[in-house]
């Protein structure tokens, strides 16, 4: 209890879904994930959609020393690039560091329509704006 403890944290839970533009699946689009948690720079990695606009972003973890004086906050952003166009589809600040903790469970049938406006979504221990939708949240 008196020691600073190292802890494995989930920075980003696995995410899969479909990206559409005006209702049509977007094939071969670059999906970029940006995460910031331990410094101001953050890290980026990229994925792409398949022929049906389906994308999969794997889990991202880290081992960190937690502090209570400094709040542990993860910033997440997801952008989709089609030709020269950039679409922000997900921006979040979260204090949750567990698998599927961002939304309080796994989102079922996640889909993101690029022409939709980003909305504020109420979550516990976080702040989320997204244009994605889901049918339900599967709790453990």
């Amino acid at each position: 209890m008196f020691q600073k403890q190292e802890e494995e944290v989930v920075l980003f839970s696995p995410m899969q879904g479909q990206i559409t533009l005006n209702g049509k699946p977007v094939a071969d689009a670059r999906v970029e994930r940006f995460l910031k948690w331990k410094d101001e720079t953050g890290e980026k990695d990229s994925f792409s959609t398949d022929q049906n606009g389906q994308f999969k972003i794997p889990v991202k973890k880290d081992t960190v020393k937690l502090s209570t004086i400094s709040k542990f906050v993860i910033a997440q952003e997801i952008r989709v690039y089609i030709d020269k166009e950039e679409y922000l589809i997900w921006t979040m600040g979260t204090g949750n560091k567990t698998r599927y903790g961002e939304l309080g469970g796994k989102p079922i049938n996640l889909r993101c329509e690029l022409s939709d406006a980003m909305q504020r979504v109420e979550v516990d221990d976080g702040l989320l704006g997204t244009s994605c939708q889901w049918d339900s949240i599967e709790k453990k």
């Binding site: 910031k36 952003e77 921006t91 600040g93 976080g126």
Partner: peptide
């Protein structure tokens, strides 16, 4: 306010 980590949020 802690969760406002980027301009985008």
């Amino acid at each position: 306010v802690y969760f406002v980590q980027n301009e985008s949020t």
